[in-house]
């Protein structure tokens, strides 16, 4: 790399350097050299670590989680770039990026059926099933969440909808649920269904607003209509396949 420094720049730099030396402060250049050397040492430590424990990361989900949490606590994202040395030397990158690929593939295969929203548990099981052929590695939902966190960057969805008791829904298509729709899901999560009356009672919404949200959800494919629930069919019940637990146990072909 050629440095083409003009006359003005040289003077300015010399002046700054002189000022710093007067104050006894370290020059950025010196610090940079120090950083470079520290990085070198760190890299060889990581290499050493990799030689001993690289397999552990792939096999042991607890170890992996610890690793991730420690990285987070020191302000490092080992998955940011495949050129990062964590990724290169420890193979952490490949593990999560491949998981990302599998997650996307599972979602693509089921999106048309569930409108792009799936319980995390179901996503986890489907991914585990699709991996069985290639490796016997342990996988945790924590791993899935970390992989999803990276997938968000591609700009096409992957938001999480949090329900009670730690249940999470994964939305793999872009376009977040509106606040109203989100609230509907929260209210419906136990029974997987809801009526206009439920919304009026539990959320104190007006009839129009309640009707509109539910119809919007039918319109966008999130909700199904059930006309046989009420006495004399007076009350339409709206159902959410994504909250319906029986669908978790469906086999891979449904």
């Amino acid at each position: 790399m050629n440095r083409r420094v003009g006359i003005g720049a040289i003077d300015k730099k010399k002046l700054t350097e002189a000022r710093f030396r007067d104050r006894g402060e370290e020059l950025a250049a010196d610090q940079l050299r120090q950083l470079s050397s520290q990085l070198g040492t760190l890299k060889s430590k990581v290499e050493e670590f990799a030689e001993k424990h690289k397999n552990e990361i792939r096999k042991n989900l607890e170890f992996r989680r610890q690793f991730q949490e420690m990285c987070a606590s020191i302000g490092v994202d080992p998955l940011a770039s495949s050129k990062g040395f964590w990724s290169e030397m420890l193979g952490v990158g490949d593990f999560y990026y491949e998981l990302g690929v599998q997650i996307v593939e599972v979602c693509m295969a089921t999106n048309h059926k569930n409108g792009g929203i799936m319980p995390l548990e179901e996503l986890f099981q489907r991914v585990v099933r699709s991996r069985r052929k290639t490796s016997g590695q342990q996988l945790s939902t924590d791993d899935i969440l970390r992989a999803i966190d990276k997938l968000k960057i591609l700009g096409n969805g992957f938001t999480l909808i949090k329900l009670d008791r730690g249940r999470i829904l994964v939305q793999s298509v872009p376009g977040e649920l509106s606040l109203d729709q989100n609230q509907v899901i929260q209210v419906a999560q136990e029974t997987a269904c809801i009526t206009v009356l439920d919304l009026k009672v539990k959320l104190k919404w007006q009839e129009e607003r309640s009707k509109k949200v539910l119809q919007d959800m039918v319109s966008s494919g999130f909700a199904w209509v059930d006309l046989q629930a009420g006495v004399g069919n007076s009350d339409i019940v709206y159902w959410f396949p994504t909250l319906f637990s029986a669908s978790f146990n469906s086999d891979a072909t449904s």
Binding site: C193, G221, W224
Partner: peptide
């Protein structure tokens, strides 16, 4: 029986065209 058989709205013809296609296919 498949999971849809236990899903109450499966027995109502769905108004949403895309959903209806899924339902009829099933």
């Amino acid at each position: 029986m498949p999971w849809q058989y236990s899903f109450p709205p499966f027995f109502t013809l769905q108004p949403n065209l895309d959903t209806r296609k899924l339902q009829l296919d099933a």
